[in-house]
Amino acid sequence: MTIFACMPVFCAIPTTYLSGSAAAGGTAVINSLALPGGFVSPAIMGWAKTTTGSFTSGLYMMAALLVAGGLAVLLGMPARTLQETR
C-alpha cells in the first residue's frame, strides 16, 4: 500500500523542477529506471526464498531498498526546496 501511495508524489518531482521537454525527459528517466525493478524485485524475492526458506528476509530487503530510495530522494533535494514547503 505504501508503494502505491508514494508513486504519484515521486512522479510529480520532474514536473516540479523541470518544464517542457525536460519534464518529459525526467519522467522518461524515472520510468526507464523503474522498469528493471520489475525484473530485479521478483529475482531478489526468489533468491531470498531459496536461500532462507521464507519470504521474510526478501521482504526486509525490499523494505530496506525502499527506505534507501526515500532517503536518496530527500537528501538529493535542494535545501531551499524543503524550506519552501514548510
Rank of each mutant, 00 (worst) to 15 (best):
S21V: 11
V9D: 10
Y60S: 00
I3R: 05
S57I: 00
W47E: 12
A68F: 10
T85G: 03
S54D: 01
M7G: 03
M77C: 04
C6A: 13
T2M: 11
L82V: 04
A64H: 05
L74F: 15
T50Y: 12
G76D: 11
T52F: 00
F10D: 04
R80Q: 04
G69I: 01
N31V: 13
T56R: 09
L82K: 00
F39Y: 05
V29W: 15
T56W: 12
M77A: 03
M61A: 00
T52H: 04
F55W: 05
A5T: 14
R80F: 04
R80K: 04
M62T: 03
L18E: 14
S57F: 05
W47R: 00
V67D: 09
A5E: 11
S41E: 08
R86P: 15
G25C: 09
G20C: 08
S32D: 13
A12N: 08
Q83P: 14
P8D: 13
F4M: 07
A34F: 06
P14V: 08
L71A: 03
G37K: 11
C11I: 08
S41N: 13
C11M: 14
L82R: 00
G69K: 03
A68V: 12
A63V: 02
A23Y: 00
Y17D: 12
F39A: 08
G20K: 11
L35C: 01
I30N: 02
V67W: 00
V40N: 08
G46T: 09
T2G: 10
L18V: 06
F4C: 09
A68M: 10
G20N: 06
G76S: 10
A72N: 06
M7L: 15
L35V: 00
P78F: 04
T16H: 10
L65T: 05
A24M: 07
T51Q: 01
G25D: 15
M77N: 01
